[in-house]
Design a protein around this nucleic acid. Structure first.
Lengths: 370, 370
DNA sequence: AATAAGAATGCAAACGTTTGCATTATTTTT
DNA sequence: AAAAATAATGCAAACGTTTGCATTCTTATT
């Protein structure tokens, strides 16, 4: 008797186990069989095909619900030759700017029925190549990519393009690829900011930022240079510090800079983080900002509005950039003729003036613009 | 002659167009045909099957390279019944904490050959349901999910579990689901922080944070309460402010609080952003931190180390949480018997003491621990 | 009532892999 | 040199859809 009971329980357990492991999800075939109709009809009903009778559709939909049917997009993708999936390569997701671009991309792609595979290149061209291969293997409908800092050759991307996969570059672009590009208008942002500094009466400036071999920093530098040249100043003759874009780099730099060099009236930092490093170093030496020395940043990181003094910066419309990028890609996917256009979209940033560049005793005779 | 030339160009163009639109990617069938061998052999060679002769493999690999072959993972997934893809639902990607969890997840999943589909619930249960359906439709191998703030019913998640899809909850978990969970040890973090405040000599405390109907904030409150009760103080009798977790909410609150109420010695804020709001409000009224009033935060947002005074906070190991979550999922996927275990992993956070809680004249007789 | 026209449904191939089993080629053993 | 053992390859079905074309069922027209 006891043995019997034991056997019974084991039996149930094994049965449950088998059930779990072999549980097949319902398919349109199951629905078809249950209603004794053809697979095609079920398939058409699922996509609300106009030629299927309303009453048939209702039956099918009911049965689908009853069987807990979930369409198998993999099978559909295979049959259709492409997935409703877009690949996005991003240097790092845990950067304020990029995670907002992602949000923007999703806000356009999801309503259009696409999902997003996100890959991180981690600023390495090798990982970027692997990412591209993964995305090709997944037969994505398109690829969005912001180049890693290491990337100077583009064969891997060209391969995707040649295969007919629509590609859109965003933020970190390059001239060599003939595709749609969405960029921040760094030149304008930087120009506007420099104009503001000039209007505040500052003349002795200093540039700090990332290496100007990267587009971003060249463009920012050029905007700065242009604004200065308009009032007869030569940026190239003023102090310049180029370094890795981190708080520490700049902090260390200014720790010794203060000792040895004469300070400018204002520091134009092409990065909020570098600005922050400078501020910490300067404040440690007892300098008051902006009274003793002014400073501006770039990117409007969340902390810019929170530190003391509040940091003047340039807001980049990252979410909007993502939306525009996604829209361009969708247009190409839907055109059916990918990569036959190459556009260049500029997202214009916005100057945000805060306390760190408020001159207490501005130049009484501001310069004219021409 | 001219007509001829024109015709020629049009011909080329159309040919190019057709070529672009019908360009088929190479398949293992193409390789098989080119080498006059069977498809199975090619398939096996591609996955380095031991039974295939080295020389055959080399031939196949060469031809694959020549034909620019990229495996079609969709077809493979269909055949194998599952994709090498993991779905991750996250309330918002553009939150410092979550984007770091993503980084952690990827760092484990990618080397294991999985890619990640990231979906945002945007704190909405409706979007969460849609996300789950999308992921099921994509036949993901597993799902990682942090619940939206709205989520109090779990049928959509139970459905995925019933279908045999391994599920791991991270950060925002719930008791009702019997799966693996990875949580921050908010109780301990909060307890440790409160102990630190006590050791600094503070006694009159105030709690601010998000609604305690959410796990996170209950746990943090309980840690705070426990530490206080150990020295004979009753947290429930001290001031408490519960509100939405934003800088503005807290800023507005303290603007009027200062006018009407007596200030505590220290504010225990269960959120860095709320702490920041309080700091701005207090400093505007000319109060010095920590001299006039101390304050602590939670989460160690990037700005915590950058503001003045530097904010004491609790660091959460978000990347590590992601890694642990991914590891648990992989283990389940590989076990082949999903959701048959339900574990609970606690990630212990770390107290980071900074200037905002340094008591200048601490209690000369610190309390004992028992 | 027969026919035409249109609406609704069904058939069957295709998408590119993987894999159990069968077959053939090669080597070893007797 | 034949048989046995092993290594290497091939066959064919399956995965769950989609879709052009063929067929059947309705309704309208004569």
């Amino acid at each position: 008797m006891q043995t019997f009971a034991l056997f019974f329980y084991i039996f149930v357990d094994i049965f449950d186990l088998i059930n779990r492991m072999t549980k097949k999800q319902a398919t349109i075939q199951d629905i078809a069989k249950a209603l004794n109709i053809s697979i095609s009809t079920v398939s058409r009903a699922m996509s609300d095909h106009p030629k299927i009778k309303k009453s048939t559709k209702d039956q099918i939909w009911d049965m689908a619900k009853k069987l807990n049917y979930q369409p198998n997009t993999i099978a559909a993708s295979l049959r259709k030759g492409k997935a409703n999936t877009v690949g996005m390569i991003v240097p790092r997701v845990n950067r304020h700017f990029f995670s907002n671009v992602i949000t923007g991309v999703e806000s356009v792609l999801n309503p259009a029925g696409y999902n997003l595979i996100i890959c991180q290149s981690e600023e390495s061209i090798e990982k970027e190549k692997i990412n591209i291969n993964t995305l090709i293997a997944s037969r994505v409908s398109g690829i969005l990519i912001s180049l890693s800092l290491e990337t100077t050759k583009y064969d891997h991307i060209k391969r995707a393009i040649k295969m007919g996969i629509p590609v859109v570059l965003y933020d970190r672009v390059c001239d060599e690829l003939d595709v749609c590009k969405v960029e921040n208008d760094d030149f304008s942002g930087s120009y506007d900011l420099t104009r503001h500094l000039i209007e505040q009466g500052y003349r002795k400036m200093m540039w700090i930022g990332g290496s100007r071999k990267f587009n971003t920093y060249t463009n920012r530098y050029q905007g700065y240079r242009k604004a200065l040249s308009e009032i007869g100043l030569e940026a190239d003759n003023m102090p310049i510090f180029e370094g890795s874009i981190s708080l520490e780099t700049s902090y260390d730099y200014f720790k010794t800079f203060i000792e040895n060099e004469q300070l400018p009236e204002v520091i134009f930092s092409a990065s909020d983080y570098m600005a922050m490093g400078a501020i910490l170093a300067l404040q440690e030496k007892g300098l008051r900002i902006p009274d003793d020395i002014a400073i501006s940043g770039y990117s409007n990181e969340p902390f810019a509005a929170l530190i003391n003094p509040k940091l003047t910066s340039v807001e980049q419309f990252s979410k909007e950039m993502g939306q525009e990028t996604a829209r361009l890609l969708l247009a190409q996917i839907q055109s059916g003729n990918p990569n036959n256009v190459s556009t260049k979209t500029m997202i214009r940033p916005r100057l945000i003036v805060r306390d760190s560049t408020q001159n207490k005793n501005p130049d009484p005779t501001p310069p004219t613009n021409d």
